[in-house]
Amino acid sequence: MKRKIPVIITSLVGTVLILSVFFPPAERMGEDFSIFFDIIAVFAFFLGGGNLVRIHGNKIYKKARDWGFSAVTLAGFFLMLAAGLFKIANPGGIAADVTAQGSLFQMLYDWIFNPLGASMYALLAFYVASASYRAFRAKNKEATILLIAAFIILLGRTPLGVYATAWIPEQFSLMQIPNLAIWIMTAPNLAGQRAIMIGIALGVISMSLRLILGVERTYLGTDNE
């Protein structure tokens, strides 16, 4: 019973949502689901947030290694909660939008959250350089192909690519790097994208059917049969 009901719910909800697409009176069900999901996600946050508080609280309590940083995490968490839920220093008071300019919540966002996020994102510039270096030591034929294609596309987007191959005569214009880059983007790149996309869709269909038919139940924490 404990294991059958969840499988029945999955099958029923999945089947109904597939069929809903073909019946106009029911076609909004997908949107309704996302509203339900948004509501469930907030309730679930009590579990996630609770876990955050418990793990860091435990570290502080046991004076474990780096417990000071856990204290900082919890302080940041509760500060943001208080600033947002009670709309502290919000010029429009409790009725105003939580992100109103001048509110503590927005200030914490602008001064802390935003620069931290942008800097983390900017690290990608360094990582993309080290990954390029790794690709440069192409281990096999596939990696070499990846590298050559990447190199042509990269050069094709820079003035260097234009100057380097401008001498090639017009009848072999495809060999000029900017043209070659465009050709790669519109021919082999497109073909690869399509094969990947069709493959992904078939994988999704098969996986979803395994879930709806109850063949795949790992997510329930139950083993098959």
Binding site: L52, V72, G76, F77, G84, I112, F113
Partner: peptide
């Protein structure tokens, strides 16, 4: 630590 705390709260 600050990022994790602030963003979870956010």
């Amino acid at each position: 630590s600050i990022f994790v705390g602030i963003s979870a709260g956010y």
